[in-house]
Simulated assay, not measured.
Amino acid sequence: MDDDRVWAFEESLWTADAEHYRESIDDECVMVVPAPPFVMTGAQAVEAVANTPRWSKVAFSDQQIMRPQEGLIVIGYTVDAEKDGGEKYEAHCTSTYRRLEHEVWKVVQHQQTPPLKMGG
């Protein structure tokens, strides 16, 4: 998967409908997010997303792509996301994809860490 396709795929995980998300997340996926239940499996993450409004706009920065072996892609980035109605979200994220067959990739790991808020 070339770099442009990687970023388009990752963006779709933030913005596309629940069915696309279900098709893209591996059953063996592990996710860590900054809200309860914090650590989820693929099925739990799909269920959580099915009941959550999707983000309407996302922008990535600090983008990194690594390919440690054939059929495995690891990415890191910062996301700025916004929902219709003005809710905003920022996090530092990682995702790992594995290739199941030609042109078929699934997410096997995803993590989100919001930026630290420094007290003043």
Rank of each mutant, 00 (worst) to 15 (best):
M1T: 07
R5H: 11
E10K: 00
E11N: 02
S12A: 15
L13R: 08
W14H: 04
T15R: 08
T15E: 11
A16R: 14
D17Q: 06
Y21V: 06
R22Q: 09
E23H: 06
D26N: 11
D27A: 12
D27Y: 03
C29E: 04
V30P: 00
V30R: 11
V32C: 07
V32A: 13
V33R: 14
F38L: 05
V39R: 14
V39C: 08
G42P: 08
G42M: 05
Q44D: 07
A45Q: 06
V49C: 01
V49F: 02
T52L: 05
T52F: 09
R54H: 11
R54G: 05
S56Q: 15
V58Q: 09
S61R: 12
Q64G: 05
Q64I: 10
I65R: 13
P68C: 08
Q69G: 12
Q69T: 15
E70I: 00
G71E: 14
L72E: 14
L72D: 10
I73S: 10
I75A: 10
G76W: 05
G76D: 03
Y77S: 05
Y77H: 15
V79W: 09
D80F: 02
D80G: 02
E82P: 01
G86M: 08
H92W: 14
H92F: 12
C93Y: 01
T94M: 14
T96R: 13
Y97F: 14
R98Q: 15
E101H: 06
E103T: 01
E103W: 01
V104G: 03
W105K: 04
K106H: 11
V107S: 07
V107L: 11
V108E: 09
H110Y: 01
P115E: 14
M118C: 04
G119D: 13
